[in-house]
């Protein structure tokens, strides 16, 4: 192999390490912020590192069939694969850690981002736990809800920038010296409302609902499997945030800007979630098929007829 391949392999590894570190730290910061809002002291911000390390060091002697063992592996594969298509940083006209970009990767990502949830659904289905089955059906119904405004927002972006790749959309923003959240604000609002559902914080935590479903799809997964699910969830949170920053906020030119932008974006679902109770499943779906979808349609029409 030549030098370029080695550099790109190092880039892959660096991206995964960065995503894991940032994602897990954000999880700890969210627990701290939740605690402070509830007037508690809260766990230390590195608590989630302890949790994940401890869970990886537990024994896991549960066997419900081999799909159950593959479910968490699917989830972590989907997270890492999605991460590979997200350009993490952009410098002057070039992309660092651009990894596996190609034309049309935004459409590929739309499919890849649901792959992990589908894998978990298969794995949780085989455990035979009734709570898992209810959680899976709730999660997939909710996914049908938030995918619609999310896809409408992406269609608006693709029409406006005449590009189906993330780097294409970032190039458009650099060339016009603006951010897509100001260029097509309706699409941004629709995507932001869809993001509330994507992160599964309250009021949209119908899938994992610990009080009524005893953590839903995860209820039969302990030890290392739970650790893999937490790892995959942390990486996937970073994937979603970095994707939003790339396509709506012009990307980030260095790590500090990346952390600032993703953190501000992350606070939207987190702070909305802390002060909210939980929706029922049909309320949640009705929410996504109401205003967010309407705003998304208006965003597409705005791009087609006004611009």
């Amino acid at each position: 192999m030549d030098t370029n391949s080695w550099i790109s392999i190092l880039g892959f590894i660096a991206t995964v390490v960065l995503a894991f570190t940032v994602g897990v730290s954000y999880g700890g910061i969210v627990r701290k912020i939740t605690a402070r809002i509830q007037n508690r002291v809260g766990p230390p911000v590195y608590q989630n590192f302890f949790d994940i390390f401890k869970l990886y060091s537990k024994s896991t002697a549960v066997n419900h069939g081999w799909m159950q063992h593959l479910g968490p592996a699917f989830a972590i594969t989907a997270s890492v694969t999605s991460l590979m298509f997200i350009p993490v940083l952009n410098g002057q006209g070039e992309f660092w850690f651009a990894n596996l970009n190609f034309k049309g990767d935004l459409i590929f990502l739309l499919y890849m981002m649901v792959f992990g949830s589908l894998g978990m659904a298969l794995g949780a289905g085989q455990t035979g736990n009734p709570n898992s089955a209810i959680g899976v059906s709730r999660g997939l119904s909710q996914m049908v809800g938030y995918e619609i405004p999310w896809v409408l927002a992406l269609v608006a972006l693709m029409l406006q920038t005449k590009s189906t790749s993330i780097t294409g959309i970032m190039d458009y923003q650099i060339a016009h010296g603006t951010w897509m959240m100001f260029e097509s604000p309706l699409a941004f609002i629709a995507a932001l409302m869809a993001m509330l559902g994507m992160f599964h914080y309250a009021p949209f935590d119908v899938t994992f609902a610990p009080a009524e479903l005893s953590s839903g799809p995860a209820s039969e997964f302990g030890g290392k499997y739970l650790a893999m699910m937490m790892t995959s969830g942390s990486i996937f949170a970073f994937v979603k945030l970095a994707l939003f920053v790339d396509i709506f906020m012009g990307g980030a030119s260095n790590l500090i800007m990346l952390v600032v932008k993703t953190f501000l974006l992350y606070m939207v679902p987190v702070l909305y979630g802390i002060v909210s109770p939980r929706y029922r499943t049909e309320q949640s779906i009705r929410y996504f098929w109401g205003w967010p979808t309407l705003i998304g349609v208006l965003g597409v029409l705005y791009v087609v007829f006004v611009r």
Binding site: A35, N39, P43, V62, L226
Partner: peptide
Amino acid sequence: MTSRYDAERFGIRGMATPRQAD
């Protein structure tokens, strides 16, 4: 577990199922 005595500051956290608990 809640605000008054806050066991979460020691890393103690409630879990819903036996599989996940220590």
